[in-house]
């Protein structure tokens, strides 16, 4: 199966906004076994100058899930998910994510190419706050391994 190159540039807006909650930040911080008080305790976060607890730097991978799932599940794009491994990942922040943020996200297909029998699919998710402020851009490259 080959990825359809016509899908370069296609956009997948998340159907719903993402609400960053203290509970979800705590769950994620516990899952990565990183109990930094800036993630868990509002007073500690405020002492660092943040309005509330902040999310760990890799937390925004969650923001890309909705749009990426739509892209990967799109039958016309032609991704065989059983052969997908994660190739690379990047985050570029305008500011940290805070508990209480309500973020809208759009995932775009920014790269499709073949390399050594594999196919590489790059998805970029941009997250903006309710007032339109850019918060973070997450870029993910997936490798669809050739059989």
């Amino acid at each position: 199966m080959a990825i359809n190159p016509d899908y370069l540039g296609r956009e997948y807006p998340a159907p719903e906004v993402y609400e960053v909650t203290r509970g979800k930040i705590r769950e994620f911080a516990e899952a990565i076994d990183d109990l930094n008080p800036v993630y868990l305790d509002r007073a500690s976060a405020k002492a660092m100058g943040h309005p509330d607890v902040i999310a760990p730097p890799t937390f925004p991978v969650i923001l890309g899930m909705a749009g990426s799932a739509l892209a990967i599940a799109d039958p016309d794009l032609g991704v065989d998910f059983s052969r997908v491994v994660h190739g690379d990942q990047g985050f570029h922040y305008s500011r940290p994510l805070y508990a209480g943020d309500v973020l809208s996200t759009v995932t775009r297909i920014t790269g499709i190419k073949a390399l050594g029998g594999n196919e590489l699919l790059t998805l970029e998710t941009v997250a903006e706050a309710a007032d339109g402020e850019h918060v973070v851009t997450a870029s993910m490259m997936l490798v669809v391994r050739g059989s």
């Binding site: 800036v38 993630y39 660092m48 100058g49 760990p56 730097p57 990942q89 500011r95 940290p96 870029s139």
Partner: peptide
């Protein structure tokens, strides 16, 4: 983040697996 003391200091972070 433990080195800087504030996880909010991170403006860019990228890796290849």
């Amino acid at each position: 983040t433990d080195w800087t003391g504030d996880p909010g200091s991170v403006v860019d972070y990228s890796v290849r697996f």
